[in-house]
Every structure is written in C-alpha cells, then in structure tokens.
C-alpha cells in the first residue's frame, strides 16, 4: 500500500444503541450485556469496515491519502472516530453517521466506502440499531 499504511489498529464495539422503533426506552446495550449473536455480528461489521477502508481502490486510497496529509493538523481527522451504522436485513449497509470532518470530500469518501458492500451475514433480526463502532486511526509512515 505504498508508503502509507493506514491501519485501523483497533475498532471496537462500544455500544449498541437502540433505534426508537424497537428499543422502547433502552438507550443502548453495552457489549457485555448484549447477546453474543449481536457481538459477533458487530465484530463482522468491524472487520468489513476495516477491509473496505484499507482496500486498494480509488476512493479508499484517496481517503487514506487525506488522512495522511492532514494527520496531526487542525483540519485532520480526530484520533478517535465513532461511526454509527444501520444495516439492512440483507446485510447491506443502509447508512452510516459520524461526526463530520472539515473536508467535505473526505466525508463523502468515507461514507461511500462504508456503504458500498455487504457484511456477508444478515443482522440478527432482534438486534438494536444503529451499531456504534469506535475507530482508532493509527497512521504509520514507511
């Protein structure tokens, strides 16, 4: 991946928040309290997001280049990024939400990358959404 190695060193499930329609009063379910099936699915979502962001293709490459160029600057990405993801029953990503970067193209690129594929499994039907994932972006320069 050239000199840039954008490694999503740790992407952890922090909470599984509730959608109003099915939560009915529950704000979120912590990973420890959630059924294992939910945790396994969230782990798979995490893996797919990692793969898609580190893929060798134009938009992912451009997003990683932006991360590298702006790393440590005021206009760069924060050290920690929480992404909320809503999944369709067929395993596709319906939408994602995150605190916007100052660069609109980077916002669009990340949104495009994270919503372009299929997770590979259907979310458990009773699983509360959105899934909240915390990304720690570690950039190492070769």
């Amino acid at each position: 991946m050239g000199k840039l190695r954008a490694l999503l060193a740790s992407v952890g499930l922090i909470t599984i928040a509730a959608s109003p329609a099915i939560a009915q009063g529950l704000d979120y379910r912590s990973p420890d309290a959630a059924p294992p099936a939910w945790g396994q699915f969230a782990k798979l979502v995490k893996y797919r997001f990692e793969e898609w962001i580190s893929a060798d293709e134009a938009i992912a490459n451009r997003f990683r280049s932006w991360l590298k160029e702006t790393n440590g600057t005021q206009n760069g990405a924060p050290a920690s990024l929480v992404v909320k993801a809503w999944l369709n029953p067929d395993g596709t990503v319906e939408r994602v939400s995150f605190a916007p970067f100052k660069d609109e193209r980077a916002n669009t690129d990340l949104r495009t990358v994270l919503t372009r594929g299929n997770i590979g499994e259907a979310p458990p039907p009773e699983m509360l959404q959105p899934i909240n994932l915390r990304f720690s972006l570690n950039l190492s320069k070769d």
Binding site: P36, A37, E121, A122, P125
Partner: peptide, 13 residues
Amino acid sequence: RPQISGSASRAHR
C-alpha cells in the same frame, strides 16, 4: 449461548 439468531443462515456463518 447462540452465536447466531435462531433463523440465521449457518451457511453464511
């Protein structure tokens, strides 16, 4: 404990 929901596809897992 179940790692997939009861109706989930084993083939996909």
